[in-house]
Amino acid sequence: MDDFLKYFENKDFIQWVLNPTDDLNKYWKDYLECHPKETEEINKSRLVVLALKSKKNLQSDNREVILFSEIIREINTRNKVSLVRRFIFKSLKYAAVLLLFLSLTVSYYYYQKVNKLDSIAKQLVVGGDQNNSQLILANGNKVLIDEKKSEIVYRNNSEIIINKNDTVNYTSNTTKVAQYNQLIVPFGKKSSITLPDGTVVHLNAGSRLVYPSSFTGTKREVYLYGEGFFDVYHNKKRPFIVKTTTQEIEVLGTKFNVSAYPSDSAVETVLAEGSIKLNANEFSFFKNDYILKPNQRAYYNIGNKEMSISRVDANKYVSWYLGYLNLETSEFRNLIKRVERYYNIKIKLQNINVASKTITGKLLLKDNVEDVLAVLVTATSMELTKINESTYVLK
């Protein structure tokens, strides 16, 4: 066991396994030729490091491996002590290895579970209808909704009411295996849905919500692609969890907004009421949890995987579901992007100097898109040119 442990103290060994070079390859080849009895132990050590690398994009200076090496090294520096202490330290070294393997096992299970949940959401994607919202039930039934705004309510565990008029019958899931429905809202539309537990979700244009036909087990889990405002029904015994491709948000009962469009470079979560916990929805030994308080925003940069927390006016970020946008919440280019999604149009911004500026006030999201664009023209002193029914130029 000692021979097995000693390689984790050697940063050159870690470097060789993770990022081999010609010099390192030559050194360890010569080393193995001179120490053939260590071949088995070296191979075991390489497997452990490679297992770590396969679960997470480790580098040679990664803190998991470095920390493990430091633990072993610290123990070895104290092995010139009494017999009892030597026994304790050796036990600690064995425990460190056991802990490493246990961590690998648990983390691998977590990694597989996350991938499985994500794969379920991906598998449910069907050919998109660019003109209608779609409610797709677990049994395969599809309901097309052509209204610009739609309201969907689950009632009495057997009925779904659409826009207060149409009724869809469904069978509540009584098995332990979750059966998933999904609501797809194309660009140019928006929808609200009251889930079987009473939670209300407002979906912005270009969004998709995957959710079970009934909530079973100890958690209530849904999957969001795009933007949604959540008013979660309180149930302290069954936390409500919103998953995105990069993170998950855990709540008991609260109101918050999540913007997680696949095309965006960041995920924004803004808390209006209550408290929520965020963590990375990916394999990680040292996973940070972030607790948000009301009027705080969590900004997760997908590129560098960094999270920043700031204080904001939550009303400015959640107003879209009430039918207006606060113009001072983001740069003008981001405002244009939101208008494009809401109306399913394309706006070409020729004056790049305006792109990074902000505008104060409110923008009402009227039914007529050209009325909305006229407000932007007035506010920015720009000119608007209509290319066709879905393309405009601001210059």
Rank of each mutant, 00 (worst) to 15 (best):
D3C: 04
D3Q: 06
K11W: 09
I14Y: 03
Q15F: 15
L18C: 04
D22V: 13
Y27D: 04
E33P: 03
H35M: 05
P36K: 12
K37D: 13
E40K: 11
S45I: 00
L47F: 09
K53T: 12
S54R: 07
Q59Y: 08
D61N: 10
I71W: 05
I71F: 05
I72F: 09
E74H: 08
R78S: 10
I88C: 09
F89E: 08
S91A: 08
Y94T: 13
Y94A: 12
L100C: 15
L102H: 03
L102M: 07
L104K: 02
Y111R: 05
I120L: 14
V125C: 03
N139E: 06
I145H: 00
E147G: 09
K148I: 15
Y154Q: 04
R155D: 11
E159P: 02
K164A: 14
N165L: 12
D166C: 08
V168S: 03
K176Y: 09
K176D: 12
A178N: 11
Y180F: 15
N181C: 08
Q182C: 06
L183M: 07
F187M: 09
G188F: 11
T194S: 12
L195T: 08
L203M: 02
L203H: 01
A205C: 10
V210L: 06
T216Q: 14
G226F: 10
E227M: 06
F230T: 00
F240W: 04
V242Q: 00
K243V: 00
E248Y: 11
E250D: 06
T254W: 02
N257I: 01
A260L: 03
Y261W: 05
A272E: 07
A272V: 15
S275K: 14
I276V: 15
N279L: 06
A280V: 13
E282Y: 10
F283Q: 04
S284I: 01
P294V: 00
Q296S: 03
M307A: 07
R311E: 13
V312Q: 05
L322R: 15
N326A: 13
N326T: 13
L327M: 13
T329Y: 05
Y343R: 03
N344W: 11
I347S: 03
L349V: 11
I352M: 05
T358R: 14
T358W: 06
I359A: 03
V375Y: 06
T378C: 04
T380Y: 11
S390Y: 09
T391W: 04
Y392Q: 02
